[in-house]
Design a protein around this nucleic acid. Sequence first.
DNA 1: ATCCCGTACG
DNA 2: CGTACGGGAT
Length: 366
Amino acid sequence: MSKSRPHFSPERFNRELLRWFEGNARALPWRATNHWYPVFLSEILLQQTQVEQALPYYRKLIDRYPTVYDLAQADEQELLTLWAGLGYYARARHLLKAAGEIVARFHGQFPSDLKEALSLPGIGPYTAAAILSIAFGQPLPVVDGNVLRVVTRLFALRDDIRQTVTKNKVRGLLHEIIDDKAPGAFNEALMELGALVCTPQNPDCQSCPVAGFCLAKERGLTGEIPFKSPPRERRRAAHFVLVVRFRAKFLLVRRDRPGLLSGMWEFPVLETRRLIHSNQKIKQHVQALTGAAVSKLTFGPELQHIYSHIHLRYQPVLAELEQAPRTTLTDRKAVWCRAEEFERYAIHRAHHKVLEHEETAAWFSS
DNA sequence: ATCCCGTACG
DNA sequence: CGTACGGGAT
């Protein structure tokens, strides 16, 4: 390291970085202890999720499941309900499975061996390194989006941070630099620096504790580094979202797994090529679904929801039944419930917007 | 409209 | 190694 980069001294770098972290670390609830369980829970939540967004969910979850034993015994539907709105719902199911395995295979202790940690569902290279370094003091570098940004700028690397090889390269570099005495603090400090100072746009180099080491700053390249290849175009989709009502009760259905939003509850959906009102088709669909005729259709405003890989446009439609539905109540994938009961179901964000939108919210108030 | 953020699976 | 998988901030 120091031979090929004479300007760079890991010792001095770590000293500046860790001193900055001591004075600037945010007081996050999972930092109040060294126990692995809060670290584990928070790191799963922080996958693809920023701290501010994860915080309220962390509080709900740690409160409901204070130990790994509580989590291992959790009801999956209840966990998904607490998770609803956060996205990447596979995380919640993996979290539950992992807790079960930690109890069953590892006597309630998080495995301190990297291979064993990686064998747990939902634990990949980032999360394993985070937990093992922070809670067990192991010198394993974490490579998340923040770290990629900080390190590529530090060494002026123009590699595409979307690619796996780049992540491995950065991990290799950090392996030479990581502070063996305080690997957890080193990792957290690097991520905190990326989140608070070395930000994607307009990094605050003036207050950066390691600006003196930064080649991107020296060469005026913080605008071009990190380089990230353009994302693939989103597939476009269009749905009618069918709010089926009979006597103040609404039909909810649970999505099959695996697949998008699997295990989550939603209003029945009619996929369509274009959002053209075809009343006949919609009525037929609802009748096939419920075995009851539709007395009235009301069209709500067009809404949209952007996923990483899908651009969804959808239109809520209130379908009122003129006779009692035949849908069986014992079907575990369909339920008729009152609006006040929606909060008991894990309803994903796109359909939750229908409950919130001012034009459609009235459909649910009796 | 464009950016941010890790893991599973084939 | 490429693709599927959500939601929020700016």
